[in-house]
Amino acid sequence: MKTVTISGHALPAIGIGTWHMGDDPAKEEQEINAIRAGLDAGAKVVDTAEMYGSGNSETLVGKALQPYDRERVFLISKVLPSNASKAKMEEHLDASLQRLQTDYLDLYLYHWRGGTPLSETISELDRLKETGKIRAWGVSNFDVADLEELWQLPAGPNAAANEDLYNIETRGIEYDLTDWQAQHDLPLIAYSPVGGLHNELGTTMLDNAVVKQIAATHNVSAHAVLLAWTIRNGNTIAIPQSSQVSHVEANVKATELELSSDELNKLDQEYPSPTHKVPLAIN
């Protein structure tokens, strides 16, 4: 099983994303069962945010985690840019903790850059770490220039991870960001690793003939192949979202799938790596 170390924790490289979950009361039991199935299959990372359903996702996750030893789960949430100031952040963190029914987060991410000076946001994140309400902090939707600016701040190199959109069809960050993060020992958390919900990214990768052929060779799903590709470098945790128990279980098993160099080359031919800088993909 592939693992990635974040803030001293060796974590399975496939976690559980919860974007778009928690909004429909009729689906609550199914979604709770899916999160629990992922944990039971060996996942540890559960990723949510105050933005997701205006807190509904955090509430759902809080319910799902109740039967589990809190120390067994690596829980991530995120603060909105509008709340990432010294005046507001702790209040919003406390609200997230209440919805999640816990007294700490393993990782608290600055969801994306907003109007608050970066120095103020990072100073407050670092202060909240000292309170024990968060055990580590990081950033999300940051590109190389953002990270270089972050690293110039006194507490900047304390960042534990950066979460960006990344999948085989959206490889722009490979031009410079993935190398930068590897050189600075900053793990990547990949969201939308198999595209967005309801194909909102217009993806073709699940239907690609080469992806399907490789999946058939290994007797796994196309999702599993795409996830194994996303985590192939050993510095990336992927957080696919699914409300289906069987899908979540299959996703977690993708940590054990090794793609051969020949298979990786075939996938590169289908979805080439970038040859120039492109704007950071955000969804």
Rank of each mutant, 00 (worst) to 15 (best):
I239W: 08
D207T: 12
V79G: 07
G196N: 00
T236L: 00
N235V: 06
T236N: 01
S77A: 04
P12S: 05
A215I: 02
E28L: 14
M205V: 11
L109S: 03
N56D: 11
V73T: 04
Y52N: 09
N265A: 15
Y166K: 08
A136P: 00
A155E: 13
L267H: 08
G53C: 06
E256R: 13
V79A: 07
P193H: 07
S96H: 04
L206N: 05
K129V: 05
A49P: 07
E270F: 01
E169S: 10
D164E: 15
E29K: 15
R99S: 02
P274Q: 09
A145Y: 12
Q98P: 09
L118G: 06
G156P: 03
P81M: 04
Q98A: 15
A64F: 04
P187Y: 02
S123F: 02
A222W: 07
G55C: 06
V61K: 06
Y104W: 09
G38V: 06
V245P: 01
V139R: 06
V210Y: 00
K86V: 12
D207R: 13
G196I: 05
A145L: 14
L153H: 02
K266N: 15
A136Q: 00
A209K: 13
G114E: 00
D103G: 09
D69E: 09
H247D: 11
E31K: 01
R232D: 04
N199R: 05
P117K: 11
V278A: 13
